[in-house]
């Protein structure tokens, strides 16, 4: 197995471990879009843990920056307008669709949720179509 595949697998298990910890210890879904929107729009007693989770994400980013900076290397050279419009659609779409790669793609599929399986198939399909159009039709 090549190193890139192995690292992807190890990283995936770490993500699965994190999701498991949130489920077993706290009884919550480790869905990032839900956590972020729950920080912006607080619900009673559900604000603080989300802030701590987000701080953990940022802290993990800092650890990567210090000890494994190549993980944060961005060679994509994306036109700024794509990043901005893409970011906007990610924010809007994940709230409309009640989840993103983590909440639907990891947590929901692990529970064999039909909604999450459909959501994941849909965002994968539209991600593939979008990259096809941008990389092979537009450019």
């Amino acid at each position: 197995m090549n190193t890139e595949f192995l690292l992807a697998m190890i990283g995936g298990v770490l993500i699965g471990f994190s999701a498991t910890k949130m489920f077993i210890l706290k009884g919550r879904v480790a869905g990032i879009s839900g956590i972020v929107s729950g920080i912006l729009f607080p619900q009673a007693n559900e604000w603080m843990w989300r802030v701590f989770f987000a701080l953990g994400l940022l802290g993990g980013g800092l650890v990567l920056r210090l000890f494994y900076p190549q993980a944060l290397e961005n060679n994509f050279d994306n036109p700024m307008v794509y990043t901005l419009v893409g970011g906007f659609l990610v924010g809007y779409g994940t709230l409309l669709g009640n989840g993103c790669t983590s909440g639907h793609g990891v947590c929901g599929i692990s529970r064999l949720s039909l909604r999450s399986i459909v959501a994941t198939a849909t965002f994968m399909l539209f991600g593939i179509l979008t990259v096809y159009i941008i990389q092979h039709v537009v450019s």
């Binding site: 990032i32 879009s33 972020v36 994400l57 994509f76 994306n78 794509y82 990043t83 419009v85 893409g86 970011g87 906007f88 659609l89 990610v90 924010g91 809007y92 779409g93 994940t94 709230l95 409309l96 669709g97 009640n98 993103c100 790669t101 983590s102 639907h104 909604r115 459909v118 959501a119 994941t120 849909t122 965002f123 994968m124 399909l125 539209f126 991600g127 593939i128 179509l129 979008t130 990259v131 941008i134």
Partner: peptide, 20 residues
């Protein structure tokens, strides 16, 4: 669910990032 996920997928493909 389907429309929201489709919009998210378009944004993911455009930006190369998802939220986490």
């Amino acid at each position: 669910l389907v429309i929201g996920s489709a919009i998210f997928g378009v944004g993911w493909g455009m930006a190369g990032f998802c939220p986490g």
